[in-house]
Design a protein around this nucleic acid. Structure first.
Length: 257
DNA sequence: ATGGCGGTGGGGCACCGA
């Protein structure tokens, strides 16, 4: 079973790329972020045509999340029930049944803007509530995936040397990431040996991708039960070389199930 | 230091992202 996540930075612009990538990668589940599209405009038929069910929640211009799956999705949760939020940043659903049941939580975590901003306060509160939700979900679902754009680079090795920002790498944000791991979640990428300077996002400006001036901020976190079944966790850089690429590229886990 | 680039809405250019 392959599960992936991709911040597409506008699904309208990237739909063809997503379809192509699904056909090529053959993942079973794909979480999407930054649809930047109203709910009623979601291209459900385009995904159905290539064999994917979908659940989603959109909004105009900003945010918006979806889960695509080859098998039907059940028990859909839109937004964190523990956090009143107008911004559409979280969607969860069951994939599979019985022994194969996996709970998938797809997230587009707030950016935070700068450490002294109201948006940073929102980011911290949002993560506090996410931690609480994941804690609850783990009690209900031993097989849990938390994936998406976390907007946190967990360690220095997840940050290119010239990065000059403070947000995405601050101790407060990294503490939030560690807080999720403290619940028992594992950063699947670090279960395996990886190339140095592996990133999932590159700045559009200054030839960021060409210079590999990136950050690893898109993650696949697995509960213990799934970490034990994880056989690979990779970043697929290929779509970043497309014409009009998203600034993020997909991340994928393989589970022996 | 600032802005670089790209998407959106709306029909300029400001806002936002990371």
């Amino acid at each position: 079973m392959k599960i992936a996540s991709w911040n597409v930075n506008s699904l309208s612009v990237r739909l063809e790329q997503v379809i192509d990538w699904l056909n090529q990668s053959q993942v079973d589940v794909l979480c999407l972020q930054e649809l930047k599209m109203e709910t009623h405009k979601f291209p459900e038929e385009a995904f159905k045509a290539i064999g994917y069910h979908a659940v989603w929640s959109g909004q105009k211009t900003y945010n918006g999340v979806a889960i695509l799956s080859r098998t039907p999705l059940a028990n859909v949760q839109i937004n964190n029930p523990l956090y009143d939020d107008e911004q559409q940043r979280l969607i969860a659903a069951d994939v599979g049944t019985g022994e194969q049941l996996v709970r998938v939580i797809g997230v587009y975590c707030p950016n935070g803007s700068s450490l002294d901003s109201d948006k940073f306060i929102y980011k911290m509160a949002w993560f506090d509530a996410l931690n609480q939700y994941v804690r609850e979900q783990l009690q209900q679902y031993p097989a849990l995936v938390l994936t998406g754009d976390f907007n946190i680079a967990p360690e220095d090795r997840d940050v290119h040397a010239k990065y000059s920002g403070d947000v995405l790498i601050s101790p407060a944000e990294r503490k939030q990431f560690q807080g999720l791991l403290a619940l028992g979640m594992k950063d699947s990428f670090r279960l395996f040996e990886q190339a140095e300077k592996s990133f999932s996002w590159w700045d559009y400006r200054q030839f960021g991708f060409k210079r590999n001036a990136g950050l690893r901020i898109d993650h696949l976190l697995l509960s213990d039960a799934l970490a034990n079944k994880c056989t690979a966790s990779v970043i697929d850089k290929a779509p970043r070389a497309n014409e009009r690429p998203s600034d993020h590229t997909p991340v994928i886990v393989e589970l022996a199930m």
